[in-house]
């Protein structure tokens, strides 16, 4: 579904990604772990087509999308859950949900979104930035589900959430996976990651240091946690 080859990225002079290669098969949930500042968010932005200083190949369904602008990539079925949750202050909750067009074959109707997220329904006319952090996180996820995106790029969706909400996010991702949605998940919470994901990439200093499966992550959890500084 997604193939990245020799992707390098810069902020001005500073190189933050160094020839990263990875791939995510259709229907897979793959996480990207790594310390703060390792370049995870930058990688997602490169996939989205939002980062100007980049070199390398990004392929979607075997098609090189390197030249496509962000809005065209989104229309190919990409759904971005940005690390800052991407709430619009000048849009109501409903507008935040309905702003993006449907980009995949199976977009959630608004009614279904509100059924799954009753808290959002209760605040549907408020400005999105008036919601709590957890609610905004839910909103960001709900939005890409409503788009019917085929590949979710989720940037730390559990960050700052209560355990109950983390669980709910996990269920949502699993349900999405059941419906054939592919997910590239940036995650620091290893326990959560092994619960939802099939495979993991460890990103260190802008390179893919290791590729691991669930059992490997579980067995090396202590070592990885201390590496991540958590």
């Amino acid at each position: 579904m997604l193939r990245i080859e020799n992707l390098s990225a810069w902020y001005g002079e500073a190189q933050v990604l160094r020839e990263v290669s990875l791939d995510v098969a259709a229907g897979e949930v793959v996480t990207l772990v790594g310390r703060n500042g390792a370049g995870k968010s930058t990688l997602l932005r490169c996939v989205m087509g939002l980062h100007a200083g980049q070199r390398g190949t990004v392929e979607l369904d075997g098609r090189n999308v390197g030249k496509l602008p962000a809005h065209r990539r989104a229309r190919l079925g990409l759904g971005w859950v940005p690390d800052d949750r991407g709430s619009y202050a000048t849009l109501s909750v409903t507008e935040n949900l309905t702003l993006p067009p449907a980009v995949g074959p199976d977009p959630w109707p608004l009614a279904r979104v509100y059924e799954a997220f009753p808290a959002l329904y209760d605040r549907r006319d408020s400005a999105a930035t008036m919601l709590s952090g957890g609610e905004q996180q839910m909103l960001a996820l709900a939005r890409v589900l409503r788009m019917g995106a085929r590949l979710l790029l989720c940037d730390e969706p559990t960050e700052g959430l209560s355990p109950l909400l983390v669980q709910q996010v996990g269920e949502l991702l699993r349900e999405a996976k059941r419906h054939g949605v592919t997910v590239l998940l940036v995650e620091q919470n290893l326990h959560f990651a092994t619960g939802v994901a099939d495979r993991h990439y460890l990103l260190a200093e802008g390179r893919v240091a290791e590729a691991m499966d669930n059992s490997e992550v579980r067995s090396r959890e202590r070592e990885l946690l201390s590496y991540l500084g958590i």
């Binding site: 939002l50 962000a70 809005h71 989104a74 229309r75 940005p82 619009y88 993006p100 939005r143 788009m147």
Partner: peptide, 10 residues
């Protein structure tokens, strides 16, 4: 930028 990422040609 965010709006472009949501498929809208700003």
């Amino acid at each position: 930028e965010l709006t472009r990422a949501f498929g809208i040609d700003v």
